[in-house]
Design a protein around this nucleic acid. Structure first.
Length: 283
DNA sequence: AAAGACCCCTGTCTGC
DNA sequence: TGCAGACAGGGGTCTT
């Protein structure tokens, strides 16, 4: 589920419950997710105050007052929920433990943070805050798409000479960090570019146009996620899921939404993943 | 070096 | 109702 906008939504939802609070208890209910948990993880977390909650690409980074940073990745099916928050923002009682609740933090403010991940493609690790950027998983990441270092020149240079479909290039986390299958499909639709087109064969002008489109697609999605955060009282405290309508993703066989286009959304498989696009107006 | 196949794991949905 | 198979929003690793 989570791409950059969802992870950012999760971070924003966790922030009031975690930032400045102390982890009183860390329950680690199994030895691993995708990889083994770090050595003595529970002990290294217990009693530590979360000084900041950051995001890099699809990773959530919780800086601790011990000089370590907890890295969290939600994989495909990871979710985090907040319950019992005393600040009045989240009024839920602690729900009954669910299958696949692998990690549970009880904070000193009464909040409980539950990490649930059926498929266990998620990950957690502890790293030194000062050298966090050099962590194996973070060092290979390209620029943040919403940051200043993601700009037209960067994308043009990254695409130059690449013989791979633009769909694959945009999924490459070393080129842009944080895009996933959904928002690549959506961005290519808005740009009118076929996912099959080779990255290196797109005119510089069209590549440039893709940059603000990517930023807009992500910003719009974060905005939608943010508005869902307001509904936590009615919802169940689950972070990262929100109503979102896509132009092409999941719309195989349905009519193209571009004004003046009477095409139909199709689906193809590229590097093992579904690409949704309009073959008529995406060239 | 770049590109593609394969793998990790469970849940859900569809078709028979 | 059961069952098989396809598929799912990620990404590391191995092979060509």
């Amino acid at each position: 589920m989570p791409e950059l906008p969802e992870v950012e939504t999760v971070r924003r939802g966790l922030s009031p419950a975690m930032e400045g609070a102390v982890i009183e208890k860390a329950a680690i209910n199994r030895p691993d997710l995708r990889w083994p948990f770090p050595e003595r993880m529970a002990e290294r977390l217990t009693g530590r105050r979360v000084t900041a909650l950051r995001r890099r690409s699809k990773y959530i980074l919780a800086d601790l007052d011990s000089g370590e940073t907890l890295l969290v990745h939600l994989g495909m099916s990871g979710r985090m929920t907040v319950s019992g928050d005393p600040l009045g923002q989240f009024v839920h009682d602690h729900p009954q433990a669910q299958k696949h609740d692998h990690v549970v933090f009880d904070m000193d403010n009464g909040a409980r943070i539950t990490f649930n991940d059926p498929r266990r493609f998620g990950a957690m690790d502890l790293l030194e805050t000062a050298t966090a950027d050099q962590h194996k998983l973070l060092a290979v990441l390209g620029p943040e798409p919403l940051g200043n270092s993601f700009h037209e020149e960067h994308l043009i240079a990254a695409f130059k000479g690449r013989n791979t479909p633009v769909k694959s290039a945009l999924l490459d986390q070393g080129i842009i960090a944080g895009l996933g299958n959904i928002y690549v499909c959506e961005a290519l639709f808005r740009a009118g570019i076929s996912p099959k087109r080779k990255a290196g064969q797109i005119a510089a002008q069209r590549v440039s146009a893709l940059v603000p489109i990517i930023k807009d697609v992500l910003t719009d999605a974060i905005k939608a996620g943010g508005s869902s955060l307001k509904d936590f009282r009615q919802a169940d405290g689950e972070l990262g899921y929100f109503q979102h309508s896509f132009d092409v993703y999941g719309r195989e066989g349905e009519p193209c939404r571009r004004a003046g286009c009477d095409g139909t959304i199709g689906r193809i498989t590229q590097s093992g993943r579904s690409s949704f696009y309009c073959g008529k107006c995406q060239r």
